[in-house]
Structure formats: structure tokens, C-alpha cells
Design a protein around this nucleic acid. Structure first.
Length: 885
RNA sequence: GGGCGGUUAGCUCAGUGGUAGAGCAUCUCGUUUACACCGAGAGGGUCGGGGGUUCGAAACCCUCACCGCCCACCA
């Protein structure tokens, strides 16, 4: 046995153990094991990302599940990996290029640019993996995967080709969300609507057939007027009925446009007239389709106006052009008025610029298996924690629309489609003979051009649950046991992964439960700062987890975070909570030191129920309760409850009460008693370490090893089981006695403090009680009260002014010359008043016949007992009070 | 517009029908042979408002207010 250093030093202990675990290959999963499987796939962080608190929360939870399962005897696979993050990584490299070389990716060309991305990836990639190791994550690193691994790329392409052949992937010219900053299409899920302050412009369009008469329209986007190809009102709108079939003069790029009627127009909004701009608005596009309107596109891909017919606007940025267009309209007298207006505008999740609805030829996916995906969750083949996310999931699936999967980005999975060279890649034609889709290039490759686009990153991530595994691994570990992720990617990833599992899992069976990607999904909360703001780089309010690990240790960080791990949406982060985690580690360390100072621990301490002290029985009973509570909390993924229960048990039940009480025996001269107390300390400490190991892997392993509590690593020690106490004679009575003793101690300490006696002053207490069993407990009472003496005197006649408190054992007196009779009088009056209030409440309750008749008997009886107790206490206190007069 | 969460001590949050809790913060005392990253004690709450159900509501129902999130083609 090595002696424990005075202070726990996570900086040396944590890396030491992590290295050992890696060397021993403790995290490596064996698909041929006979143990039952437990598996988790890690949500892959971006390859060039750095660790955030969100990752810490997520991965700590996964590690807890993995480590607990290992202890329970499961063969555990926790499969880690990283994501190539198409748009994100490309944007970062482009930014870097612009800053350092003032070049765009087009200046370099595709090949050279991709080389630069690889360079960037080599430099910044994999940092996050090292950071996860510092957190203590027990992933099988030998299986680390990347969404651009050769095999993974092939799998993505296979799926694309397969879906194309099934007719579920198609190419089409449709309205999509265009990100003018990243210059790519994005999916509906990547558009975030935000309220935006702007203006509502009321523009007058002159009627061609009735010069001098105007049609007024309210618009937020006057810069798109040149793309208007009709004016529209609701068919039932009498105000404009006579204009149907006539024409209006478009004020910018002057042209005649038809006036039409369409159900989609809201007569209540603005003037009830809509300017129809099919090229730049989704609703207008639909109206245009219904009325066969031409489509006029007046925007460049980067968001500048493309309209030589109006030179004042041509080439201007869309927001500049908006102001300029309003000016132009003003000058020509076409602007009736301008109102300040706030509306919702779609922003790109990636670039944070307003999305431009745009017609574009893209690849789309019609989702397969949506009904099955819905059923899998509804019927709880897949369970969500907390369950209210089921509804969010269902709503998305019920309203699902085709997924735009092509991105005008170079970094990613290139679309395995080729176009015959005579065929312009972006033409309208959908003649299949001119498109070739396949894993390999067409035989006469020189006559074909490959599609220049790549696939949405999520189109590769949605295969993550099984394409990261080879066949043998899949056989053992798929479906995965649990998925831990943040709710903001429930659509991006979770839902799509469920669909992918149902549709393509290799070796799919007829039973849906074999194909689902995972059985349980635990959604974590979002970590916010103290003020409730989202953590963000721009706000600079996101603490660096590595700094927190340096300051508090990985275990401290993990435990602190898990204690506040939410069951609802948000967590407010406060470094104080991490500090508490660190303090808890220190507390644990110190109680272990205390134990170690009294000799070697026993690997299998013998607990003899018949000779245990009453304090030990109480502790063991509470350990049993704690184990039950923890089991129940794990079943519901309530990590905060697990952490809190362990915390309370260790700090309060074990350290503050049991260990302090047991010191009587530990420091005593009775060897048998001493041995018994130490055995209980060992037994419970061993249980504590095992309960805590999933949360605090390093310190528990260190103590396990230093105290020689087990033969091998704590990682594979069985979780503690409840100890049988049913053969203990009158356990309930003994526990009641302990409770009475503890209450008496608290009353005595209170007496001391209220009497303004300093904590360290040795004083005498007198206990007036009829309780026979108490005499043997006097040394313990003395220790816990820090008393010179605790005297037992069943017939004690208290002198006037003697401070007294009523306890379940009787009364406890402080034998000090009553320096302050007035203060004592005041104290007693307060106490008497309090009890009188409670007594009246109890009396009232019992006087209520309905209560007595209808409440459960046990509760009524409890009230009776309380009332009885109060009257006894009151009598004694009043007696004491009289002595002070 | 629809949906989902939330509102409990100064702060962060537990608590789903039976005497309102924890940690932090505050105040008092303390170098009591594990721990000042500690120990002991104390103060502090008409559980967002209003109605209802019930013998009994922080909890269940209705309603209102405010905060947050998600979804939605009112230009």
C-alpha cells in the first residue's frame, strides 16, 4: 500500500491512468466476445473543431453509459470519429486563403484548393480527439472513423446510386434556399427564421387599360420589382374584381404584366395585392406555376442585382439595391408610402446572411420509410428521453418535404453523376440517357463531365450508425444501444439516421427492431451562460473546457457538469458548479486518506450484521436506498439525480455522520469494534468508488488502486449490490434510535450556538431521558457534540435559566452558568410559539372529520403522533420557561 | 399562426397529492489528530397571477401573464 499524498493532484493522476487504460486496451471492443453487447456511436465532431462545453456534456454522458455498461459485464463499443463538415471546413479554408493570399478557391482551381483543405485538415484536424482523451473518454480509438474514409465514401456513393435507381433521388429545377455568402444551396433545415426590422413599401402600379388608375401593393422587397411577372389578388376580393384579366405597368424595367387572381393571397395583408415574383419567392413561384407565368431572375448568385435594364440597380448588393429602388420609385412618384415593418426572414444557419429563395437545378431526395420511421418512435422501438421530443420528431416527419442534397461546394463527397459533354450540366433537360449515375465513371469517360457538386454533409452522416462498422462488428453491436446528442440536430441527424437504418442497413431483416439505428436516444440540454445566452464565439462567453480541466481536473469538470445536467432544455453554466465538482473529488480523497491512516483495507471486508454498530446499520440501510435511487435514475437517464444522490450519500451520510460517529470505535481500544468499523468503512468506500467510477473515472481508479480495494482495475469491477439487512433484529427500531441520536446532537449543537458559545469550547451537556439503550452511546454523543462531558440523568432538576432543547430522546441541557437569562427567555418563547402554531395546524387537521374519514390511515396516525409529540414538548418547554421568570 | 418547455430562497436548480428542499451566496462560531477545496450553527420562500377538483395542491384541471425553444409561403 502506497501512502496517499496530502492533496489529490488530477494533473498527474488523470493522464497516468488514461495512458494505462490505453496500453491495456481496455476500451477495445471485441465482436467475438460472449458478453452481451452495449454500443454507442459518438456524434462525430467536425474534424477541425475544438472541444466546447457542449461536447464535454455530451461525451461525459456517453462515457458514463459506456463505463457503467463495462462494469455491468457488457462488451462495450463506443465508436468515435469525426465529420468532414463540408461547408464549414471549406468556408474556414476560404477565409484563410483570402486573409493570407487574397485569393478565392476559384483562383486556385478545384484540385489545388482541395489540396489546401487537406493541408488545413492535417494542421487543425484531430485536436478535438486529443481533447476528448483528456476528458477521459473510453472510446475504442482503434475504430476511429472519418466520413471521408475510403470505405465510407464508397458507402455514401452506393446509397446515392441505389436511391437514384429506385427513383428516390432525382434532379430537378426547383425553388431552393440559396446562401449568397457560401454560394450554395442549403436544405430547409439549415434556414433559421429571424425577425428582421425593415420597411413595408407601398408601390403604385398603373393600370395599362385605365391610365391614371393605380394598383397599390405592399412589399418588403422593392429591389425585385424588375422580376415581377404578374399582379395578384384574392378571387373573392371585390375591390379588384374588375381588374381581373387587365394589365399593370411594372414600374422598374417598365413592362406590361397581367393581373391575376389566386387563392393564396391574403386579402387582409397590406392592400390585398401581391406582386408576383416567381424567381425570388417560394409562394410566388407556386402562383407562377399555376398561372404559367414567366420566370425572370434578377439576382447574381452572390446576391447582387443582375438587371442591365435598370443601370441604377444593376450590380448593386441586394440590400443597397433595396434602398436605391425605393429612391427610384420615390422620384418617379410610384412610392405611395413607407412604413416601418418587422417580419421574419430566413437566415442561413451557416453564414448568418438572409437566404435568397432561388430557382436552381439541384439533386433532391424523396425520403423513404417515413411511415416506418414515425412508427418506430411512436411504438417505442426507439425511445426518446425526455419523451416530449417524440412530438417534435413526429411533426417534422409528418410534414416532411424533399431534401435538397447537392451543394455547390468542393469539399465533400462528390456526386457520382456524369453528364454527356454535349450536354450543358445545368440545362433544363432531364433526359436520362444524357446523365450517368454510378459508383465508377462511365466507360467512355472522356465524353462525360462529372457533376461538380458535392453532397450535403448530413447525407453522409446519416449512415454513421452502421457504416462505421464492419460486418462482424455490426452483427454484434447493431442496433446501437443509445445515442446521446443535442436536440438541435434531431432533424439533421437523428431522424435521418433512423430512416437510413430502416432503408439501407446492410443485411436488413424483416423485423424493424433489427434495423433501427438505436434503442434509446438521450437529448441533452443546451449549455447557456449565466445570463441565459447561447454560448458563442462572437460573444466570447464560452469557457475553454481545457482550461477548466487544468483548474478542476477532468473528473471535477465531469461531475460538476453532470450534477446540473438537465432534464429540460437549457443548462445555465456557472464555473462555481465545476468548482463544487473539484471540491467533491477532494472530499472523497480526504476521507480515503483518513481510512488509509488506520491500516490496510480489506479487498473483501467481512460484514457481520449481528455485530454491527447502530451507525453502521444506518449507513448500510442508506447505501441500499441510494443504490435503488441511482438505479431508478439511470433507467430514466436522470444523470443529475444520480450525481446528486452519490454526492449526498458520500458527503452527508458517509463523511459527516457515519465516519464521525465511527471515530469513537476507530480511535477506541476495543480491537473488535475498531475492526468492524473499518470494515464497514472499506465496504462502503468500495461501493462509493464503484458507483462513482462512471462519473469520475480517474480518481476512483487511483483510490481503488492505492487502497487495494480490488484485484484488478475498477473499470471491470461489478457495481455494488445491496447488502441484505433483513436478518437484523429490530432494524427499524435501531434506525429510529440513530435518527433520535442525530437529532439530539443537532439540538445540542444548536443550543451551543444560540447560547453564543464558541465551537471549540469544551462544555457539559446533560441528557434527561428514559431511553435505556443510550448509555453506551455517550462517547459518540460527546464526540459529535464536541463536549467535555455528556451526563445521563433521567431525574435531572434543571435550575432556572438552564438552556434546554426538546429532542426525541428527551431533553438536552447545557450546563453553563446562565449568562443571559433574557436571551434564553427569548429563545424559549420563540420555540414555544413555533410549536403552538404547528400544534394548532395539526389539531385543525384532526378536527376535520372528512380528513379523518377519507385520508389514508397511516397519514391520520402520523398527525396524531405529531400532535402528541407537540403537547409533550410544549409542556416541557413551558416548564423550562417558568423557571426563568 | 401552431406546437413544446419553463416561472419554487438573493443566484442555480431538485421536488408529480400528505409538515416547502439542496448547493452557492449571506451572517455567527471554529487551527475538534481526513479535509479551510473544511466543520458546526443561523437567517431567508403567501412555490408567477386568478379560478377549479380534493379532506388536503408547489404538484392535477382551466385561464391569464411573462421568459425560452421548435415549426409555419402573410408578401
Amino acid at each position: 500500500m502506497t501512502e496517499l499524498p496530502k492533496r489529490y493532484d488530477p494533473k498527474s493522476v488523470e493522464p497516468k491512468w488514461y495512458q494505462r487504460w490505453m496500453e491495456d486496451r481496455d476500451f477495445v471492443a471485441n465482436p467475438n466476445s460472449s458478453k452481451p453487447p452495449f454500443s454507442i456511436v459518438m456524434p462525430p465532431p467536425n474534424i477541425t473543431g475544438v472541444l466546447t462545453l457542449g461536447h464535454v456534456l455530451n461525451n461525459s454522458i456517453q462515457d458514463i453509459l459506456a463505463r457503467r455498461a463495462r462494469m455491468q459485464g457488457f462488451e462495450v463499443l463506443w465508436l468515435p470519429g469525426v465529420d468532414h463538415a463540408g461547408i464549414g471546413t471549406q468556408t474556414a479554408v476560404e477565409k484563410h486563403l483570402r486573409r493570407t493570399e487574397n485569393k478565392t478557391r476559384h483562383d486556385l482551381g478545384r484540385e489545388e484548393f482541395l489540396r489546401r483543405v487537406l493541408e488545413w485538415q492535417d494542421k487543425h484536424g484531430g485536436i478535438i480527439i486529443e481533447q476528448l482523451k483528456r476528458l477521459g473518454c473510453s472510446c475504442d480509438w482503434s475504430r476511429e472513423r472519418y466520413t471521408l474514409d475510403d470505405a465510407y465514401v464508397a458507402a455514401v456513393q452506393n446509397v446515392f446510386v441505389d436511391l437514384y435507381r429506385k427513383g428516390l433521388i432525382y434532379r430537378g429545377r426547383r425553388m431552393i434556399n440559396w446562401d449568397p455568402a457560401a454560394q450554395t444551396a442549403v436544405s430547409d433545415e439549415e434556414v433559421i427564421s429571424k425577425p428582421q426590422k425593415g420597411n413595408l413599401y407601398f408601390v403604385r402600379y398603373e393600370i395599362v387599360e385605365e391610365p391614371g388608375r393605380f394598383l397599390e401593393v405592399a412589399t418588403t422587397r422593392p429591389e425585385t420589382i424588375m422580376a415581377d411577372t404578374a399582379m395578384a389578388f384574392h378571387p373573392g376580393d371585390k375591390r379588384y374584381a374588375d381588374l381581373l384579366g387587365k394589365h399593370a405597368w411594372r414600374p422598374l424595367a417598365r413592362e406590361k404584366i397581367p393581373i391575376i387572381a389566386d387563392e393564396a393571397i391574403d386579402p387582409e395583408f397590406g392592400t390585398g395585392v401581391l406582386k408576383v415574383t416567381p424567381a425570388h419567392d417560394a409562394l410566388d413561384f407556386e402562383i407562377g406555376q399555376r398561372h404559367h407565368l414567366p420566370i425572370v431572375d434578377v439576382l447574381h448568385p452572390d446576391g447582387r442585382i443582375n438587371c442591365p435594364a435598370v443601370p441604377e440597380l444593376d450590380g448593386l448588393d441586394r440590400f443597397k439595391a433595396r434602398e436605391k429602388a425605393a429612391e427610384l420609385l420615390q422620384t418617379m412618384g410610384a412610392l405611395a408610402k413607407t412604413e416601418a415593418y418587422e417580419n421574419n426572414v430566413g437566415f442561413s444557419d451557416r453564414s448568418d446572411v438572409p437566404i435568397e429563395p432561388r430557382i436552381s437545378e439541384q439533386w433532391f431526395l424523396r425520403y423513404p420509410k417515413t411511415k416506418d420511421a414515425l412508427a418506430a418512435v411512436r411504438d417505442h422501438l426507439i425511445r426518446f428521453f425526455p419523451p416530449h421530443w417524440e412530438k417534435v420528431y413526429a411533426q417534422w416527419l409528418e410534414n416532411i418535404r424533399d431534401w435538397c442534397i447537392s451543394r455547390q461546394v468542393w469539399w465533400g463527397h462528390r456526386i457520382p453523376a456524369w453528364y454527356r459533354k454535349s450536354q450543358a450540366p445545368n440545362s433544363n433537360s432531364q433526359n436520362d440517357e444524357k446523365i450517368y449515375v454510378g459508383i465508377n465513371p462511365p466507360a467512355d469517360a472522356e465524353n462525360w463531365t462529372q457533376d461538380s457538386d458535392t453532397l450535403d454533409t448530413w447525407f453522409s452522416s446519416w449512415l454513421w450508425a452502421y457504416e462505421t462498422m464492419d460486418e462482424g462488428t455490426r452483427k454484434k453491436f447493431y442496433p446501437t444501444s443509445a445515442l446521446v446528442t443535442a436536440p438541435d440536430i434531431i432533424f439533421f441527424w437523428v431522424a435521418r439516421m433512423i430512416i437510413a437504418g430502416l432503408e439501407f442497413k446492410p443485411g436488413k431483416s424483416d423485423r424493424m427492431e433489427d434495423n433501427i439505428a438505436f434503442r434509446d436516444v438521450y437529448f441533452t440540454g443546451l449549455i447557456r451562460d449565466k445570463l441565459g445566452r447561447k454560448m458563442s464565439k462572437s460573444l466570447g462567453n464560452s469557457p475553454d473546457p481545457l482550461e477548466l480541466i487544468d483548474k478542476y481536473g477532468a473528473d471535477g469538470l465531469r461531475f460538476g457538469l453532470m450534477r446540473i445536467a438537465p432534464r429540460r432544455q437549457d443548462i445555465r453554466f456557472d464555473e462555481k458548479q465545476i468548482e463544487e465538482g473539484r471540491n467533491f473529488a477532494t472530499k472523497l480523497w480526504n476521507v480515503a486518506r483518513l481510512r488509509q491512516m488506520h491500516g490496510t483495507s480489506d479487498v473483501a471486508p467481512k460484514i457481520d450484521n449481528q455485530t454491527l454498530s447502530i451507525y453502521a446499520l444506518e449507513l448500510l440501510a442508506r447505501l441500499n436506498e441510494t443504490i435503488d435511487a441511482i438505479e431508478a435514475a439511470y433507467r430514466e437517464y436522470q444523470f443529475n439525480t444520480v450525481a446528486q444522490r452519490i454526492y449526498d450519500f458520500v458527503w452527508s451520510d458517509y463523511c459527516d455522520w457515519f465516519v464521525e460517529a465511527a471515530k469513537t470505535e476507530i480511535f477506541g481500544s476495543d480491537e473488535a469494534q475498531k475492526k468492524s468499523a473499518l470494515a464497514v468503512m472499506d465496504f462502503v468506500l468500495s461501493a462509493i468508488l464503484r458507483l462513482l467510477h462512471p462519473f469520475m473515472p480517474h480518481i476512483t481508479e487511483e483510490l481503488w488502486s492505492l487502497l487495494d480495494l480490488g484485484e484488478s482495475s475498477i473499470q471491470f469491477a461489478l457495481p455494488p449490490e445491496k447488502i441484505r439487512l433483513d436478518d437484523v433484529l429490530d432494524l427499524t427500531g435501531k434506525r429510529q434510535l440513530v435518527s433520535a441520536i442525530y437529532q439530539t446532537i443537532q439540538a445540542g449543537r444548536n443550543l451551543r450556538a444560540e447560547s453564543k458559545l464558541s465551537s471549540n469550547r469544551k462544555i457539559r451537556f446533560i441528557l434527561r431521558t428514559g431511553e435505556k439503550l443510550i448509555s453506551s452511546q455517550i462517547p459518540t454523543l460527546r464526540r459529535l457534540l464536541n463536549a467535555e462531558e455528556v451526563e445521563l440523568d433521567p431525574k435531572y432538576q434543571a435550575p432556572a435559566g438552564n438552556p434546554v432543547a426538546v429532542t426525541p430522546l428527551g431533553e438536552i441541557f447545557l450546563t453553563v452558568a446562565a449568562a443571559d437569562r433574557a436571551g434564553e427567555r427569548q429563545r424559549l418563547d420563540k420555540e414555544i410559539a413555533r410549536i403552538e402554531v404547528e400544534m394548532r395546524a395539526a389539531e385543525e387537521k384532526l378536527g376535520n372529520q372528512s380528513f379523518v374519514d377519507r385520508a389514508p390511515a397511516a397519514i391520520v396516525e402520523e398527525h396524531r403522533q405529531r400532535l402528541k409529540g407537540f403537547s409533550v414538548q410544549l409542556e416541557k418547554l413551558k416548564h423550562a420557561r417558568e423557571g426563568l421568570n
